[in-house]
Each structure stands twice: as C-alpha cells, then as structure tokens.
Design a protein around this nucleic acid. Sequence first.
DNA 1: ATGGCAAGTGATACTTGA
Length: 265
Amino acid sequence: MFKIATWNVNSLKVRLAQVVDWLKTHQPDVLALQEIKSKDFPSAIFQELGYHSVFAGQATYNGVAVLSRQVSDGIITDFPTFEDLQRRILAARFPFNSATFPTTQTVRVLNLYVPNGEALDSEKYVYKLTWLQHCQQFIAQHFQQFPDEPLIVLGDFNIAPQDEDVHDVNAWKNSVLTSPAERQALQTILDLGLQDCFRNFSQAEKSFSWWDYRAAAFKRNRGLRIDLILASTAFAKNCESCVIDKEPRALERPSDHTPVVAVFK
DNA sequence: ATGGCAAGTGATACTTGA
C-alpha cells in the first residue's frame, strides 16, 4: 500500500498546525507540498511525526517540499534544460515494494508547482507554456531512462483539464487555467503515458480542489480542479482510490487549495 | 464590468495568486 497526497498550502508557516493535524489523521507515505513561501523548512517538527523532509525553498513566493515516511534519494530541483530561479519542482525516488512491479523496488515522484500565468497576454503566460515544455521534456527523459519504474507526477498544475473541472465555463473562457494551449500542454504530458487518477473513478459532479477566497466561493462551490495526481499507465492500474479532501478548506484560515489523496496497491 | 480575499515583505502600499 502506498498513500500519496498533494497540497498547495499557500504558506507553510501559516498552515503548519493544519498540515501537522492532517498528517496525524491521514498518515500518507508521501505528502507533496507547494507554495511553502519560505526558504527554510521546519524539518524537526515533521521528524517528530516520523516524516523525512526534502524541500526547495524560496522566500515570499513558490517553494516546494516532500514529506515521506521513507528516506528518499535522487533529489532533483531543476529541469536540466531550463534555468529558473523559481523553486517549483522537486523529484525524488522512494523505496516501494509492489506485488505488481516485482522488478522495481522504487517509485519516482515529481512534485510540481506549475506557474499561474496571470493572463493570456502576460509574459507570465509565455513563461508558463515554456515551463510546461521543459516539464514535458523532463518527464519524457524519465520514461526513456527508467521505462519500468512507476512514476507519479502530482501537484498544483494550475490547469483545469476539462470543462467539467470548472464551476462556470463561461466565466473562465479565454482565461488562464483553462486556455486551449495550457490544456494541450497538459495533454502532451499525459500522452507520454500518464493518467489523471481522479478520473479513473466515478466522482461527484462539481468536484474541485481550489476555491477563491473571495465572494464565498467555497460555500457556493465555485471552484476549479487544478490539483492533480498523475500516474504512469501501468502503475495507474494499481490505484485503488483518488479523492479530494475538502475538510481543510472549511477550517479557520484555510489554504485556498485542499489536499488530493491517492492510494496505490 | 468590477472587486471581492489572503500572504509576504517590512513597516505602506505593493505584488502575486487563480
């Protein structure tokens, strides 16, 4: 059994107690965090809970981390083809014994905080699409090098894959997070041999992972599904469940994103 | 059509997010 989750915490400092509580309750093998918004990381606090930490921190913006029961190796914090000061990726390899994958003893995890893009006519949108191209290359390289190793790509993709992942398609037309070019970039990544685990199960309509802080968006369920867990095709068959945990979004001072959790045999 | 909310920085108003 391998339980893995992703959560954009929008400042780990502010959300630390919530993350600690969530870990105690759900006890995942791996938790991928985005937007920790700090150069430092409170590793000692997670160590007390039995979790190892790896992180790529940055002051003010971005920053990603991975907590895990097992010690990881093969840490990568940059796409080899793309120089970027923004800390948005963290790849690591974890020990994992799978009955269906007897030849591999590991699973590779790629934690992503995909750029937001701001607006379709913004420089940041160009950056987002360029970033996604390098991300695609990086994953393609992984499949070439380690064709038999299970891969999980998860995180805040800042792309709603389909219209069903958007509360109001008209309101989000011609916008970042839903534009055809972004969706095509995601599709190109999926076409390498990855599946959106959430959609391998029947789900409630209007299932979202992010809701704006403003205008009571959570209460009115006006959200987007932009936090995803992708698994390599063969490994995705081992996925037993993939759910969005809306509970933390209802807490006092919540992150605008909420955790997504997948369990693999 | 607009702004609404939150977080970080640093000490105020600005930037960024999605």
